[in-house]
Amino acid sequence: MKAANFEHHEPTSVSKAVSLLESLDEPTILSGGQSLVPMLRFRLARPDTVVDINGIDELDYLHEEDGYLRIGALARHADVADSEVIEARYGSFADTAPLVADPQIRNRGTIVGSIAQADPKGDWGSVLIAHDGEVVARGPDGERTVPVDELFLLPYDTSLDEDELITEARVPVPVEREGSAYHKLKRKTGDYAMAGVAARLIFDDDGRIEDAGIGMTAVDITNARASDAEERLEGERPDPELFAEAGELAAEQSNPESDEHGDASYKERMVEVLAQRALGDAAERAGVIERRAAP
């Protein structure tokens, strides 16, 4: 790697980081570095200053507190993959973590960093959408929360200000009769998704879908919500035909582009398939449908 010169800052607290972000000219935040470092290597990113947050211990956490699963800015993908809390109750997170890139990247890369990067091919944005999550940002004017639907603007572009630092991503702690899942189609380990779908379902006492969340990966300019499909599901009882219909609606709402690895129509069809599979797993994990037979 032959990056251009830059100034490297290592704050040890969030407040120091925020004041650096305020005072420096066009700073770039370095957390896990799994997107930034390759961009530095290609000199696609040429920051004058880099604020490295890896020394801020207060950001290194992953736990449930006050009704939220809280993911600190330094929680790594591998932390999610290894977490017992996640394994027990957060199906979509448990599905996603081992599918992010490769083991080396998962050891360094962070969930929050991936969300802040706002790459439409990132997996976590979809999971956050499915769970109606939000991020906590700290800036010179204090702390604010940004719902995921207001976060992603364009590829690599969020609604945050340059001097704001995301300290946490969070989703509500699951209720009873809730299940979630993530399905991803990729060409190989380490590759980005060709398409991915995260689904979360909450059922009422009567076994009807009370709330549905569906987020889509790599099939639009940002991680995208399949709102038509969500609407179609709510109030209904789960069955394969309903999920197939929801899958079709999700596919209709997606806008994939053709590339070397697949054309747009194939990717749309994959959204349909992956949505059905994710919804089936979510319903099963919520305990409202029987475990499906093995293929």
């Binding site: 390759p38 490769d102 060409r187 190989k188 380990t189 380490g190 590759d191 070397e260």
Partner: peptide, 11 residues
């Protein structure tokens, strides 16, 4: 290697 895909042990 982002676009020229090589198999890993996983594949």
């Amino acid at each position: 290697f982002m676009n020229y895909l090589l198999p890993t042990a996983n594949e």
